[in-house]
Write a protein that binds this DNA or RNA. Structure first.
Lengths: 207, 207
DNA sequence: ATAATAAAATGAACATGCTCACAATAAATT
DNA sequence: AATTTATTGTGAGCATGTTCATTTTATTAT
């Protein structure tokens, strides 16, 4: 059965669409792969010819949203923002595109983006992390930091970003104002960090 | 069968011991509840009379380790440390007690301590978080911050702490020096945060 | 048209965390 | 000692993510 590429893509999209619907309606963990398959009109096993795991299905949606967010950011930035403002715009652009997926993002982002070591790393999650961090590095570079932030600084950035995502996932304040405040707060912290007030790092502590 | 309390506790400990052994040897996800039951000499179902879930079993060990860490911290602190040093000592005391469990902590801490919203919150994890944050608040209070840090600050603290845990879980440097550096770094950041350089927070951003 | 082939679909089967109706047993009661 | 009872132990069974040997089918070759 050498089906036309177009028919294959149609099936792929049908699976993604129905999965998104179910995830939004019932949450990620409460939507079973059998339900998704049924809704998409394929057999249970067929889905796994298209996506290696349920998690990958969800992360495919996330990755696409973040890609659009990056586009939007590039369109909207004016080159007149200071570093904090530009990072804010970058993060907010991503969140804006993730918004429709918000009802089911909790468990997905937790598993796919967490820095904790895993048995089977989710390809899409790792890619999303690297892409995001690369963008952050690029933005920082644009603001006159000649040397790239060290590994520790970027580790801290990722911790803060995950905290933001977790909070935002749950935020019920109108227009997610509280999340905006947390982003603002976190970014000021981060910018302070890389602005190099850390000259006295490395003190020895008994451990 | 009204078994003596002592016999019950013996069974409970046998389960915990064997579980710890298996978790350390094969990791959390690769140790099945059936294996644990077999090693402990009970039926598969019996374990769930003692612990509501495999995750709870692991978190019981974590909670106990952190309790001992808190004791150790209280014994070792001299009241002469500055805020950063005291927080460092607190965190390091916890990690020292968690050390034996390190081989399997990744997936456990990720699931139990993550701030992402969950369907079924793990009791032990939530308790551990609250206890840890209470200690941090107490330490901060001791260093002359009359008003407690706001919610956002503590959210950021937890993000940083989780980043530290994740990094430490993976750290292969001798004596975990890199983790120590990250703790030191993160804590300086946090102390800066609560030292109130945040007077200009709350700027409005288009979102 | 027919046969051959390679890609795709299928659903039975597996592993595993967990539940629950039932069995077994130690203490309490008679 | 026999009976009752409350508690603990048991393992078959369920749900679900995933695998894979088999079947189906669109295309290609004859």
């Amino acid at each position: 059965m050498r089906i036309s590429e177009q028919a294959k893509q149609a099936t792929r999209l049908r699976i993604l669409d129905k999965a998104a619907e179910l995830f939004c309606a019932k949450g990620f963990d409460d939507s079973t792969t059998r339900e998704i398959a049924l809704a998409a009109g394929v057999a249970a096993g067929t889905m796994f010819n298209y996506f290696p795991s349920k998690e990958t299905m969800a992360m495919t949606m996330v990755t696409e949203a973040l890609r659009q967010g990056l586009d939007e950011f590039r369109r909207r930035r004016t080159n007149e923002e200071d570093l904090t403002e530009e990072l804010f715009l970058f993060i907010a652009s991503g969140l804006r595109r993730l918004q429709p997926l918000r009802p089911f993002l909790g468990p997905v982002l937790e598993r796919s983006l967490s820095p904790f070591p895993r048995k089977a790393v989710c390809q899409e999650g790792e890619a999303a992390r690297l892409s995001h961090l690369a963008s952050v590095q690029e933005i920082i570079g644009r603001h006159g930091f000649t040397e790239a932030p060290d590994y520790a600084a970027m580790t801290i950035y990722w911790s803060l970003y995950l905290g933001i995502l977790a909070f935002w996932t749950n935020d019920t304040s109108p227009n997610q104002e509280e999340s905006q405040a947390l982003i603002d707060y976190s970014l000021r912290v981060f910018v302070q960090v890389i602005s190099g007030t850390g000259e006295e790092r490395g003190a020895a502590y008994a451990c």
